[in-house]
Amino acid sequence: MVAGHLQEKKGLFYIVLNCKDEEGKRKPKWIPTGLTVKGNKKRAEALLLETRREFTLLLNATEKEPIVEEIIEEMPAEEPFDQGPLFSVFMLQWLAMMKHQVEFITYASYHNVITNHIVPYFEEKGLFLKELLPSHIQDYYQYELEENGVTTNTVLHYHANIRKALKHALKNDLINTNPADKIERPKKNDFVGSFYNKQETNILFEKVKGELIELAVILAAFYGLRRSEVVGLKWTAINFENKTISIRHTVTPVYFEGQEHIIEKDRAKNKPSRRTLPLVPAFE
């Protein structure tokens, strides 16, 4: 369906359709509704939807830009309408801003989601930030689920980025409402973990015996440590007097723009992750 939105001008509602001229350049078409802004929002929204449908049918029937000059009211040259940025451009602008507000690991995650998934999809759609609807976002999530085969948990990560960016747009008066707040989020997948039994664990120990990763495997098996926690262990974490081992330091590889970055932190993932465990005699 042809994209469009309502625009208020001199107390009246106008329908603005996202069209292109013969050269493929963007040329919004303004259609007067004759409805005053006060008390006519629902009627104007219904008229917008009807006009978009009719325009789309006409476009499909003619396979070219339909002529609607008879209902077009050209805007005066001295009053150009600022469409604002495309949604895809806005997401990149927001990403650039977040680079200096979040940790590198978080930014790398945002960068991967936005540049590799969200932007390519919406760039092709050519939607402006101001005309983004909940249905557009819902269609995108459905596309990711059906065409790219991602999980609902992955879609929820995409949703978190989009919603946070649109929250910023709303706060700065770039949009009137946050369309991401009005969609039906997919249900989160429940994680069901699996674990080795005693026999399988002993077999694993035999397989890694004498190998470089032997200690890492044993630490993970005994203490349930994450990979970043095992790699990040320091001698200062071992207290032989109190017979304890403290989980504080982490080392995490992050792949960003084709390069591997090693991120070291003197803190664990979150507060519950910062813990002190008993030192097993075998390790001592």
Rank of each mutant, 00 (worst) to 15 (best):
Y140Q: 05
A165I: 01
P134H: 13
A165K: 06
A160W: 08
Y143H: 11
E146W: 03
E147A: 12
Y140N: 06
Q101Y: 14
Q101R: 15
Y143D: 09
Q138M: 01
T115E: 09
T154F: 15
F122M: 12
A160L: 02
E144T: 03
A169G: 01
V155H: 08
Y141D: 07
V102N: 11
L170N: 00
V155A: 02
H136E: 09
L132Y: 02
Q138P: 00
I105M: 11
G149W: 09
R163E: 00
V113D: 08
L132I: 14
L170T: 02
Y107C: 07
E144Y: 04
L132C: 01
I105P: 05
E123G: 02
F128V: 03
L166M: 10
K130C: 01
Q138W: 08
V155D: 05
L133R: 15
F104Q: 09
V155Q: 06
D139M: 08
E103A: 13
N112R: 15
N116L: 13
E131L: 05
E131C: 08
T106K: 12
Y107Q: 08
L129H: 10
Y141M: 06
Y158D: 04
D139H: 11
N153D: 14
H111T: 06
A169L: 03
N148V: 03
N161K: 09
H159F: 04
E123Q: 12
E146G: 02
L170P: 01
T151W: 15
E147G: 00
G149Y: 13
E103K: 15
H117T: 09
Y143I: 12
E144I: 07
S135I: 13
S135C: 10
F122A: 02
V150K: 14
A108M: 11
E123K: 08
H168W: 13
K164I: 02
Y143T: 05
T106S: 13
V150D: 03
Q101C: 13
L156R: 04
I105V: 14
R163D: 04
R163S: 08
G126F: 10
H117I: 03
Q101P: 07
T154L: 05
A108D: 10
L166D: 07
S135G: 11
T106Y: 13
L127F: 14
Y143P: 06
H168L: 04
Y143W: 09
Q142D: 12
I162H: 01
V113G: 00
E146K: 13
H159Y: 13
L170C: 02
P134C: 11
V150C: 14
T151C: 13
H136T: 07
Y141C: 09
Y143A: 09
N148H: 15
I105K: 15
H117D: 12
Y110P: 02
A165P: 00
Y158Q: 12
L127Y: 11
I162W: 04
Y140R: 04
G126W: 02
Q101G: 04
